[in-house]
Nucleic acid binder design. Sequence first.
DNA 1: CTCATATTTCGCCACATAACGAACTAACGG
DNA 2: CCGTTAGTTCGTTATGTGGCGAAATATGAG
Lengths: 122, 122
Amino acid sequence: MFEFMSIMKALADPNRVRIVCALEAGELCVCQIVEMLGLAPSTVSKHLSILRQARLIVDRKEGRWMYYRLPEETSTEAQGALALLRSSLASDSQILADAVRVAEIQCLDREALCRTQTKQNA
Amino acid sequence: MFEFMSIMKALADPNRVRIVCALEAGELCVCQIVEMLGLAPSTVSKHLSILRQARLIVDRKEGRWMYYRLPEETSTEAQGALALLRSSLASDSQILADAVRVAEIQCLDREALCRTQTKQNA
DNA sequence: CTCATATTTCGCCACATAACGAACTAACGG
DNA sequence: CCGTTAGTTCGTTATGTGGCGAAATATGAG
């Protein structure tokens, strides 16, 4: 029950749902998620922490950057919840708009967002 | 997104999750749910209202009593969420204990149960 | 009609949570 | 070393939410 409740509470916030759905396309670093949501980095970091504790996302550190992605393996409850998100929001307008925005952000990265990242993305 | 969020918010409270799971066994009237949760009738009524707005439960009025049950037909999102609850909490200790308690409550005379509550509250 | 019963609505309080900015930590480049 | 950059943690604030009791509503009994 406790684990299930932490998953439900994690997914009871629209910004956290948007993060999870954005990660369907692949891993993102924090600054990219910050740009997508238009929230302060500290706020986004808190959201990511809540999603990670619910085992809905996993992280990977690479130098100064922190990358987040959906887990390959996690609890049955978390997998079920992720499947529910996928089936319920696949054609949601907000989620689709976010996907477009994320694609733009990944291009913008080369110019301005994370300057040092230009080498890696090029 | 709005509908999905209302479902997630509805299921982000353990007492509401307990209500939905209890209704797996069949419909219950408000006073039976009140007895199971041990909360004030006004609190339970609010929970039921939130679940109903999320289309996770439906109601049926019979005289002075209000019966709640799981919907035969509802939104795809709600169906998926109910399925997630079923698969995630089928063997949860709290949910199992509630099922036993509900069976006990159903054996009691309904009017006697409500009369007892009234006297306790008075 | 009036009274009792079952449920809901309202008003209030305590606590949880989402947001921000500031301060802190970690990693890289001089 | 130092300064810069990416993230996190901390402190504060505003809003949301769950709880209760009292009042309101609706129905049935007398």
